[in-house]
Design a protein around this nucleic acid. Structure first.
Lengths: 192, 192, 192, 192
DNA sequence: AATGAATGAGAGTTCATTCAT
DNA sequence: TATGAATGAACTCTCATTCAT
């Protein structure tokens, strides 16, 4: 990685921190620059505008999220374990990057253009879970006739929703959450 | 309802519309006032500040969402039907109020104070689904040993995640979504 | 004139003063606002942008210049007197509004759009002098076969050039200039 | 000319081009450096500041203008021809360097200091035409009792004003202008 | 000698908020 | 009570200038 690329990444990491803490509108270029330990104008040598920086930050952040998610999925042997690990991963990520995550998931943004970029980001994450499910069907771990999109929604939506409830409403820490429990219910359903 | 309360509600409805369309930062007091057909200064006779208005709007909006959700749940006879109706309701609401919903769900906001208010709002919605589950357990429709919070997360998270995928990534309309399919998977799980 | 129009004119007059003293780029909105005795934001209630304000100021200024020029021309009985009065008027105006005048005359500006607006302004001033010449031809004061545009150029160019030389290079006051002399030469030419 | 002087001139020529095209405020040091094919910092090895560069450019430009004007005047045999050539030269120069010319003629600038420098520049150009007139008087081509300054003003002001009208208001090309016509009127005047 | 990455003062602009009417 | 003209703090962004390489 060149020096220029390194500084770019430094700014992106500063942007993740500041956008996460202050929200989209609360974040200022000056604040991001200070966090990165550079001057205000320097940010503009690397990114055209605040909007551009936000977009690139979302892309970068989404990519890291997705890559980590894929690694996490690979670490599990059974579906049960995989979903438990996804829950764990989500909870940890949410705790650290609530706003960014919210942005990615909901398309909460300034412009129509940015919204579509973020939804594209979101859909590639979705894809990683769909791949996992496909494998589960091939190994006969999962029902053969299941709709893959619906299954992915249940997994991602379930773990996310549970993690948010425990973390932000009940004030739990990520490791106090019953990841095994949510995984089990997703797999076995609510009825006998 | 007094004349004063009526105008208050008019402003809140205008705020829902403008915040939904323009986002939190894009919305202006002037725009909300115009939408409500009143002068800019009048908004300040009813709400202390933009932040206050946003908070009250979230509270009001969340209350309406919750009330409607409860009605919807009551309309279903079986669990299957109830969850299908929830999915239908979510999709319609999401389509109309993406930004507001995003705000409620993720706490995407300006200040820590507003975040906690919105999460409280969210948790009361959660409660409505938990009540539904409790009834399901008592009528033996659902597993007796199920964790109520986990079950509620699966339902809300599952339908939300699926609706968002189909609506905003695939560009479906609310009534083109397979509400029956998502309900069935949530109830029966992913494995045999 | 309504109160709103009055304030608009106050801002325009402040703009003439500040743009004249500081030049186009030296002038600041804050400076103009201070000169007009109002807040910075108020300027934007009357003009969309600095560019718009500059354009409107040029139009307003040009109009006043032209109207005054027409009055001045009417005050003279003979061509000789008319041109002498034009010279007088030019010198006085130049002394007070060098930059504005320069802007109008040369199209010195930021954008192509503004340049064309100013040239249009300039050409209407030209028209006033052409009308004067037409009358002179009809009254047989001037040569019948003279090109009107060329004649107008000689008058306006001659008095302007002479006034600038005496005022800004030699440091004369407007009333120390030989207005009679320049008028006579323009009328009788350089050769016998 | 040393290598250092050569590069200085290269920068000045780049400055003429960029200032002419972009205007005083639109021009950037970076743009001038790029035009000269050098780095931004190098400009500062040859000129102290943007203001200094602008001043030096005006001086250099004025000098070239004056030198060319003198050559042009020398090419004409009669007064008539000389003025016709001046008109031709002016029109061509105006077409190519409107902004620079505007700056020189009107003193449109940033500071009082720069204004006086430019007016001094302008006055030396004036001098070249005055010399021409003096010669005309000695050769009896021109009236003996004519005021030299006034005569120079009529020539320079007349051709400039006419050229600007035809070029920028009517959209003519330099060679479509009636240079002969303007010269004749300047020489013979408006009356019989 | 030449560079361009880095800087930060300062500009235009927006808009939540106030207050005289 | 209702208004919108007026305000100015705070923002994004530009670019002349510096200086380590």
């Amino acid at each position: 990685m060149t020096a220029k690329e390194e500084k770019r990444v430094e700014i992106l990491n500063a942007a993740i921190k500041v956008f996460s803490e202050a929200g989209i509108e609360g974040a200022t270029i000056e604040g991001i620059a200070k966090e990165a330990g550079i001057g205000k104008g320097t940010v503009y040598d690397y990114f055209d505008s605040k909007n551009t920086l936000f977009q690139e930050m979302i892309r970068y952040s989404g990519q890291r999220f997705r890559d980590d998610l894929v690694s996490v999925i690979e670490q599990g042997d059974t579906m049960m374990e995989k979903i438990r690990l996804i829950s764990q991963f989500y909870a940890k990520f949410l705790k650290e990057h609530l706003d960014i995550f919210g942005s990615i998931m909901t398309g909460q943004t300034l412009s129509e253009d940015m919204r579509s970029r973020m939804l594209k980001e979101m859909s590639t994450t979705f894809k990683a879970v769909e791949d996992m499910i496909q494998v589960g069907i091939q190994t006969l771990e999962l029902k053969a006739d299941i709709d893959i999109e619906i299954a992915a929604s249940c997994i991602l939506g379930g773990v996310q929703s549970y993690a948010m409830k425990k973390l932000f409403v009940d004030g739990y820490n990520p490791d106090e959450i019953d990841h095994e429990g949510i995984a089990k219910v997703i797999l076995t359903g609510l009825i006998e």
